[in-house]
Structures are given as structure tokens and as C-alpha cells.
């Protein structure tokens, strides 16, 4: 992205790890805003928070659908994927893109959420999500495959500096929305679900609880969400940005030239941090067919790693 205008660069940032488009782009834009001393309008901060939580909900739903696929639970997979499709359509209705591209811009947002669409559609989708999850959690053939599978001990999560649901399922209560708040967009601070077991079931439970928390946050931000984008400051320097993407802490570092173009940009999606733990989780006391289950529960992306 060197040489690009930051606004143009967001096109590449949100496509670096498409399933974390909002999280990565939010980190990048915060870095640009810090580098330029730019204040983001409050309405835009609320809009960003809505988009970030919508991204978390659809990713967690997708992970749960993948878990059903890996345990061979075809009915559960189908029902979960119906929920996922409904969430993607909600994204389209709310922000005009199924994967929430072209929402965040340096200084604000490109578009505000369609508030009535979200309020009208989300509760019904969440009811379906809850129904599916409750059914999964009383299905022994599913739960038995998740329990004690792919365990990441708490000390490993700490030693490897893991982030996101993987860390939280191992008792590492890290969430940059709460731990590194940036103002209006991170208020109210989320309740951060955590589990201690560190296995696949714990990761699924964390994701389920986070969906509920995200729904609460969306409702809290919707009333004040709106459009808005400030011009970038005129004394560019360097900045660090962060966001709690569905996979955990996303980081970005940006250095700008005197004319406001990018001299150097660094993206560190959450997948970079958490892939390191996958082999440890898969190594101990697992059988061959556990590998896809563990992979689904980590819900990482190769694209985020090979950005």
C-alpha cells in the first residue's frame, strides 16, 4: 500500500482478510487517524461499532455451521447455514454489502446503517440462532466430539499471546474493546465471556455468548449511529490502530509521508497470532478426524496470515 492515499488503501485492507473486513479496516483507519490527529464524528463511531458487531455475529454463526459440518451433523449444519445466510442478507440490507466492505473510511464511515432494517430483521434471526444452538448443545453426538478436543491450556494461551475467542475459551480474558477503549465506539464496554476448559466446546460456548453480547451492543449503538467522515489532519506522522475483530485483536501500524500518503503500512490480523497455537491444540491426545473440528473452532483464515 506504500504510496497510496489512505482512503484508497482501505480497498486493499478490507480485502486482505475478507471475513474480518471491518475489524482490520477499523484498526487501519484508527492508525491513520492517530497518525493525522483526526477526530471521528460520534455518529460515525456508533456506525462503526454496529458494523463490527454484525461482523462478529455472522463469523461466529459461520464457525458454528463449520463445527456441525466437521462433526457430520448435516441437519445442524443446514440450519446453521440458513442462519448464516440470513445474517449475510442482513448485512446487505444494513450496509449494502454482504461482507460489509466499503463501510469504514479514514475519518469516519462511507455509509450509515439502515437502522430499521437491523431492528426489524436481527431479532428474528437471533431467535433462529438460539434455537439451533440449544439443539446442538443437547445433541450428545455433537457435544461429545467437542468436549476435551483440541485443548489449549491457559498457560499456553498466555505464553503464545493468543487473542480472541481462542484465548477467552482458555481463561485469558482479553478483549481490546474493553481493555483498550477508544471512546464512544467502545462504550458501553462489552461483557467479555470466558471459559476455562480451553477445548472446542469452550470455544463454541464463548462464541455463542459473544453473539448475545454483540446483539446488546448493536442495540445500544443503533440509536446514535449515522453518517459522518472528518477530513484527515494535515500533519501526518505514524500511528497504531487496533480493533477487536471476530478472531481477536487486529493491529495496524501506518507511517505517512509529508503529503499524507502511506510510507509504510503493517497489518496484523488476529489469524497471524492464533495460528501459532493450532498445532499445539491439534497435537495432544487427538485423533485424525478431530483436526477439522479443531480448525473450525479456531475459525482462522489463511488469507489473514498470507496477507
Amino acid at each position: 500500500m506504500a504510496g497510496l492515499d489512505p482512503d484508497r488503501a482501505t480497498f486493499f485492507v478490507e480485502r486482505a482478510d475478507g471475513l474480518s473486513a471491518i475489524g482490520d479496516t477499523l484498526a487501519f483507519c484508527r492508525a491513520v487517524e492517530m497518525a493525522t490527529g483526526t477526530e471521528v464524528p460520534n455518529a460515525a463511531l456508533h456506525s462503526r461499532a454496529v458494523a463490527l458487531e454484525l461482523e462478529r455475529i455472522y463469523n461466529h454463526a459461520a464457525a458454528i455451521a463449520a463445527l456441525c459440518q466437521t462433526t457430520g451433523l448435516s441437519v445442524g449444519q443446514a440450519r446453521s447455514e440458513i442462519v448464516l445466510e440470513q445474517l449475510l442478507r442482513l448485512n446487505l440490507a444494513a450496509f449494502a454489502h454482504r461482507y460489509l466492505f466499503d463501510v469504514i473510511a479514514p475519518g469516519g464511515v462511507r455509509r450509515a446503517p439502515a437502522i430499521e432494517q437491523i431492528r426489524g430483521l436481527l431479532p428474528e434471526i437471533l431467535d433462529e440462532f438460539r434455537y439451533v444452538v440449544n439443539a446442538l448443545l443437547i445433541t450428545n453426538s455433537h457435544v461429545d466430539r467437542l468436549e476435551a478436543t483440541g485443548v489449549v491450556p491457559a498457560e499456553d494461551a498466555h505464553r503464545l499471546s493468543l487473542v480472541g475467542p481462542v484465548a477467552r475459551a482458555s481463561g485469558e480474558s482479553i478483549d481490546v474493546r474493553r481493555d483498550h477503549p477508544t471512546g464512544v465506539g467502545d462504550e458501553p464496554a462489552p461483557l467479555v465471556p470466558a471459559q476455562a476448559a480451553g477445548d472446542v466446546l469452550a470455544r463454541m460456548r464463548v462464541m455463542v455468548d459473544e453473539v448475545e453480547e454483540s446483539a446488546q451492543l448493536i442495540e445500544a449503538h443503533l440509536a446514535d449511529a449515522g453518517p459522518g467522515c472528518s477530513p484527515l489532519g494535515e500533519e501526518p506522522g505514524s500511528g497504531l490502530g487496533w480493533a477487536e475483530s471476530p478472531r481477536g485483536e487486529a493491529l495496524a501500524w501506518v507511517s505517512l509521508t509529508g503529503d499524507g500518503r502511506i510510507a509504510h503500512a503493517r497489518l496484523r490480523p488476529a489469524s497471524v497470532r492464533n495460528w501459532r497455537a493450532f498445532d499445539d491444540a491439534a497435537r495432544a491426545q487427538n485423533v485424525f478426524t478431530d483436526m477439522p473440528i479443531i480448525e473450525a473452532s479456531f475459525w482462522l483464515t489463511v488469507a489473514g496470515f498470507a496477507r
Binding site: 506504500a2 488503501a9 501459532r276 498470507a306
Partner: peptide
């Protein structure tokens, strides 16, 4: 982790 970067940071 083979570092087959797509070079996103160097685009442009």
C-alpha cells in the same frame, strides 16, 4: 507457516 506473502503491504 510458509511465508508466502501476497505482499498486500507493498501494493502501490
Amino acid at each position: 507457516h510458509w511465508h508466502k506473502h501476497r505482499g498486500r503491504a507493498s501494493v502501490g
